Measured scan of single mutants.
Amino acid sequence: MQRVNMIMAESPGLITICLLGYLLSAECTVFLDHENANKILNRPKRYNSGKLEEFVQGNLERECMEEKCSFEEAREVFENTERTTEFWKQYVDGDQCESNPCLNGGSCKDDINSYECWCPFGFEGKNCELDVTCNIKNGRCEQFCKNSADNKVVCSCTEGYRLAENQKSCEPAVPFPCGRVSVSQTSKLTRAETVFPDVDYVNSTEAETILDNITQSTQSFNDFTRVVGGEDAKPGQFPWQVVLNGKVDAFCGGSIVNEKWIVTAAHCVETGVKITVVAGEHNIEETEHTEQKRNVIRIIPHHNYNAAINKYNHDIALLELDEPLVLNSYVTPICIADKEYTNIFLKFGSGYVSGWGRVFHKGRSALVLQYLRVPLVDRATCLRSTKFTIYNNMFCAGFHEGGRDSCQGDSGGPHVTEVEGTSFLTGIISWGEECAMKGKYGIYTKVSRYVNWIKEKTKLT
């Protein structure tokens, strides 16, 4: 034993070699072989497995989906700052455009905790909710729209109204504003409101030439003092309507412009014939205590009207009353817009006519005020429907199939267009061939041609 100890002390290297040989010859039971080890760690190889990531292109799944990435790591994937920024906006807080917040056709661009709407022409605001041009839906104005110097929408209202708090709607500024039905039992019968379409306001006024200088022999019209197929109006439903009495009662109609003036057809009036105007009328054979009678003290036909040349060209006249009318729910003026808007309103496509005229061709006159909704007829169809001249200051309205029309005794009465609950004068009943005849239409004086003249002559002093 002493000898062994001496050998170990003198030859430590020998001992180490012996131990190493023993270990190498022993069977290893701690580690699995290569094949079995792979069965336990069965993990798919990654895209760049075996390579240094710093030297390969980034992978979106590896960089940002398996674990949260930084902007720089995302930049490695896209290799483009702009594309990385677009991805980053949604990656950080989701897609803010998912709810489609942009209105009126706006395009949404996502941002971090926010979004941006790219608005089409005519709109602005956070969600493109603000109209900035009158060309689109009248700028959301209830009545009139004008573009300011910086191309912003400025709404306005006709006389007797003021802008509401929203700067879009119009509200009454006087007790009985024009064009409004205020009798409670008839307010439910107000005709369907007309909503502004998209309009090209630059070209809204037709490029028409008034044929002022045409000389033409007097034409022989049949029954051209021209509501057939209409309905009984309720008291106060058309408070701007008046009836004219002269040699015979209810020979023509008219509309209240203001307390002192009536507008009617020029062919209705004769110099030297006494005319009485009755406002607030409903049943011409009954006294309903809503009527107001006034005498006409002055007749002003349009300066281009000449019955000797043509009885229905420039067929418009103004009547001055001896005493002002007292405005109330049964006696209310009709609204008159400017030339541009009167023309736009007419193009809405349908209007209402009213009167006490004959209820059928050569038949009896109506006792109760009649009204009828009539569609506008395109000019080409209008011209083809008659052998008589249709001037540019006239328009056609009615039904091709016949059966409904204005008729004798309705002449001078109103053709009105309702705009968001307020009625505007767009025409004056003038003439036609018979009444409600198939293929024939009622012919009306186009008020847009005469609004400046009306307003100039009827100013209240």
Rank of each mutant, 00 (worst) to 15 (best):
Q2F: 10
V4F: 13
M6H: 08
I7T: 11
M8K: 14
I15V: 08
I15M: 10
G21W: 07
Y22W: 14
E27W: 04
T29I: 12
F31K: 14
F31Q: 15
L32S: 15
D33G: 13
N36A: 10
N38I: 09
L41N: 15
R43Y: 05
R43I: 10
R46Q: 15
Q57A: 10
Q57K: 09
L60F: 09
R62W: 03
C69T: 03
E72P: 15
F78A: 05
N80Q: 10
F87N: 15
W88L: 15
Q96L: 06
E98K: 10
I112L: 11
E116S: 13
C117I: 00
F123V: 04
G125Y: 00
K126E: 14
D131I: 10
T133K: 07
K137G: 14
E142Q: 12
Q143S: 00
F144Y: 07
S148Q: 09
K152L: 09
C157D: 00
T158S: 07
Y161V: 01
R162K: 08
A164Y: 03
S169M: 09
S169L: 05
P175W: 04
F176D: 02
G179C: 02
R180V: 04
V181M: 13
V181E: 07
S182E: 06
L189C: 06
Y201M: 11
V202F: 12
A207I: 12
D212G: 13
T215R: 10
T215I: 09
N222Y: 10
N222C: 04
G229A: 11
E231Q: 09
D232A: 13
P235D: 04
G236W: 05
W240P: 00
V242E: 02
V242Y: 01
G246H: 08
V248H: 12
A250W: 06
G253K: 08
T264K: 01
G272H: 11
G272L: 05
V277K: 00
T287R: 06
E291D: 04
I297P: 02
I299L: 05
P301R: 11
A308Y: 10
N310C: 05
K311G: 05
H314Q: 03
L318G: 00
D322H: 05
L327Q: 03
V331S: 03
P333T: 03
P333V: 00
I336K: 00
K339F: 08
E340T: 13
E340F: 11
E340D: 15
T342W: 01
N343V: 04
K347N: 11
F348I: 09
F348V: 14
V353E: 01
S354D: 01
G355V: 09
G355L: 08
G363K: 13
Q370N: 10
T381Q: 13
L383C: 06
R384D: 07
H400Y: 13
H400V: 14
R404Q: 06
R404A: 09
C407R: 05
C407P: 05
Q408Y: 09
G412M: 10
P414W: 03
E418S: 11
E420Q: 08
T422G: 01
L425N: 02
G432Y: 12
G432W: 06
E433P: 11
E434A: 14
A436H: 13
G439Q: 09
T445Y: 04
Y450W: 00
V451T: 05
E456V: 09
T458S: 11
K459D: 14
